[in-house]
Amino acid sequence: MAAARADPIMFSEFLQYLFTGITIGAIYALIALGFTLIYNASHVINFAQGEFLMIGGMATVSLTAMGVPMLLAIVLAVALAGLMGIALQRLAIAPAKDANVVTLIIITIGASIFIRGLAQLVWGKKYHVMPNFSGDEPIEVFGAVLNSQSLWVLGVGAVLVAVLVYFFTRTMTGKAILATSMNKDAARLVGIRTQMVLMLAFMVSALLGSIAGIVVAPITFTSYDIGIILGLKGFVAAAIGGLGSGVGAVVGGLALGVVEAMAAGYLSSDYKDAVAFSMILLVLFFMPRGLFGAKVVERV
């Protein structure tokens, strides 16, 4: 049947799947970057990353519903998420600082359940809508259409990646975070306050997550439990790209999104998630550290 179809239609279909994939992929990439950031600073995989996303979207929606102008609402929501990031580190991670990494990861899972429960109490279980930032009119390219919000997701994603690269390579604080991740004791010896650095990593990661949550909310809607599945997919993206690698997070996210969309389009929508999760198995089987993961040298 596909062969009977004219070529331009096939091309526009392919383009449509690609657009869909890149949009979703950019969302996964932003979430994956949040994982990467905290992983770099502490080797902890923060499973509350999805909740930052949810806080960003939900707080913006409820603030605008209260009459706060959109832009101010976004700023306040991001600030709120930043505070939650600090609170998570101070109240849940810091008290257990001598615990091993696995314990800390379990703490983040507990924290995510707590935050989700709190959000359910405050905001209820309903799904909420956020309007597109710039009009509902879709953009047409070679017969495929692109939601204008997708451009926002891609644009904001690109800006955030650039800012992060600058932060880690050019600023003292960014370098301090990297130093802490490489060797905590040595970092402390040269005068870096490692607890402070950890707090900073959680805060930046929360800011990142909440901004992602806000730009994607017009596409996905938002609700108290939106963080579960998006958080999981973001983690898959981070693992494919190689935990700890910024480039890996972006590539992993985009690859996951595009593979999912192509699978839904050309194979069957039933197998979409199966294909995505087989991909992580394959990548990890042949490249256990992910596509861009750092080589690990065991120190004896």
Binding site: E13, T20, T23, V216, I219, A261, A264, G265, S269
Partner: peptide, 10 residues
């Protein structure tokens, strides 16, 4: 799922 564009295109 957060996007069903691919299925609808099909």
């Amino acid at each position: 799922d957060t996007d069903m564009t691919a299925q609808l295109t099909n």
